[in-house]
Amino acid sequence: MFKIVRKKELNASVTLMEIEAPFVARKAKAGQFIIFRIDEEGERVPLTIAGYDRENGTVSIIFQKVGLSTKMLGELNEGDYIQDFVGPLGRPTETEGVKRVCVVGGGVGCAIALPSAQAFKEAGCEVDVIVGFRNKDIVILEDEFRSCSDHLYLMTDDGSYGEHGFVTVKLQELLEKGNQYDEVLAIGPIPMMKFVCKTTEPFGVKTIVSLNPIMVDGTGMCGGCRVTVGGEVKFACVDGPDFDGHKVDFAELMNRNGVYRDQEAEDEQNHMCRIEKIGKALIQ
């Protein structure tokens, strides 16, 4: 069992939790992920590591309450325990050889972009960060990004905060102005990563994306997370989750990620019952 030692709501649907997991904390690196399971009936859910504290033996995760398991996790509080927390899985973000980087985060994907931006900064890179949100209300981690970047560009789709426009607008502008990046790292929704790649391609800038396909075990066993990269089949859990974005088949990834969508919608009713049950158990 793994204890939730801290919980903080970052916005209406995004929550940060610190989990006591000393073995994972000792080894965790930016770009890697963990798999959690709420309880004995729970599914295995992969989440990219948002931070770690080696001394205190904790690992942070930031998640959006979108599906059954993340909603249930969101119901839990400091002092509660979850059944499983395994990691660190996948390969860390590579910082070697990169002198100047542009980290692009979209929505809750910023949670994952942050430790990578910090890792680049610690490695001595010059770090530009572009983060995008739908509107002012859901902006997260602004201070954290500010302290690990040389330039922070904060974008909102509706212009209610920061600059008006998508992250790709800013990226295009920076590239056109002649900014030279050794690498662009994009983390966010699949369409956003796809368009970041489209934006950088004409400039020939190496672009890495962090993928989040469906997985079960996270150790290379199930093959559920297979993605096509440069015509080759890769397993995101062991070969990734970071891949060369110009080679990723995004359409395929998008399609595969929807495999249980209809079923989940149908099950929504049952799921809500289970969430209520967990909620009640906590109140009692």
Partner: peptide, 30 residues
Amino acid sequence: ALKGVMSANEYLTRINLMKAYTSESDTPVI
């Protein structure tokens, strides 16, 4: 890579380890 193609490992893990055949399990199976 179409939806509905999977390894036996994935199918069996969902069913056996994750008990997707029971109504209590949160893990979906096709």
